[in-house]
């Protein structure tokens, strides 16, 4: 269902989408039943001359069961929702799949920056690649991210990955994702972080291994990277101007 509104581009996007669909189906059913009951009763028992009110306390067994039985069914539905919800949560936030790559994500007012290992594949060496606003990842690779904030609370969100995690200053928060579809996707900041909150856009570029290798070479060669640094888009520049004003 969510897929209709926004592509899913990571492995757990589907499980969240399925959960969403399950909840939508169950609560949608109950919502419709209840709304129909409400409007039907409102219509059926509208005021009519000569028809007196029935005196019902709500404690009569044969009437009360019209409430208790649906109510018990609702509890069953709650459990049916809860179990997959917890499983999805467990899989995304509490398990630890084998990690193939690590990337550091820094949030600050008002940009995302990233630190990835260079060609040697090890973080915190001289050839680390640091990018601002753009994260290049390889498709079908499990990434571990280490999220930090340099000033206020930010929230690292990649809607297409169905990924969201707040970044708290003073802590390193980690998590994982595994992109499974090539393309360019938005990175948002979903926690208000000051007047430039709407500027905190980034892009995650999911590439094939070949493309990623090519990028790696370009990025680790500063002369090439300088030339290719993306120009700020026209709209972006105008917003920046507005913020400054």
């Amino acid at each position: 269902m969510l897929e209709r509104y926004l592509t899913g581009a990571s492995t757990y996007a589907h499980s969240i989408d399925h959960l969403f669909l399950l909840i939508a189906a169950l609560v949608g059913f109950w919502l419709i039943v209840a709304e129909i009951a409400l409007f039907w009763l409102s219509f059926k028992f509208r005021r009519k001359q000569g028809r007196p009110t029935q005196y019902v306390t709500g404690e009569e067994k044969h009437l009360a069961r019209w409430v208790t039985i649906p109510h018990l069914l609702v509890i069953v539905c709650d459990i049916v929702i809860l179990v997959p919800a917890l499983i999805v949560w467990f899989n995304i936030k509490q398990t630890n799949p084998p990690i193939e790559q690590t990337v550091r994500v820094f949030g600050q007012q008002w940009a995302w920056s990233f630190q990835q290992p260079g060609p040697d594949g090890i973080l915190d060496t001289a050839d680390d690649i640091r990018t601002v606003g753009e994260l290049h990842v390889t498709v079908n690779t499990t990434y571990r991210f280490e999220l930090r904030s340099r000033d206020v609370v930010h929230s690292f969100a990649v809607p297409s990955f169905r990924l969201k995690q707040d970044a708290l200053p003073g802590r390193t928060i980690s998590g994982w994702f595994r992109p499974n579809r090539v393309g360019t996707y938005d990175i948002q900041c979903t926690q208000i972080c000051g007047i430039g909150h709407a500027l905190m856009a980034g892009r995650v570029i999911v590439e094939t291994p070949q493309e990623h290798a090519a990028w790696l070479i370009r990025a680790s060669n500063p002369a090439l990277a300088e030339r290719e640094s993306p120009p700020a888009s026209a709209t972006g520049a105008s917003i920046v101007a507005e913020v400054r004003r």
């Binding site: 917890l86 467990f90 509490q94 398990t95 802590r171 390193t172």
Partner: peptide, 17 residues
């Protein structure tokens, strides 16, 4: 008990770091 299964609490700053 189910929710308390420790797992490796990845997103948890307090229990990891």
């Amino acid at each position: 008990v189910f929710p308390l299964i420790p797992g490796t609490a990845w997103a948890c700053p307090a229990c990891m770091v």
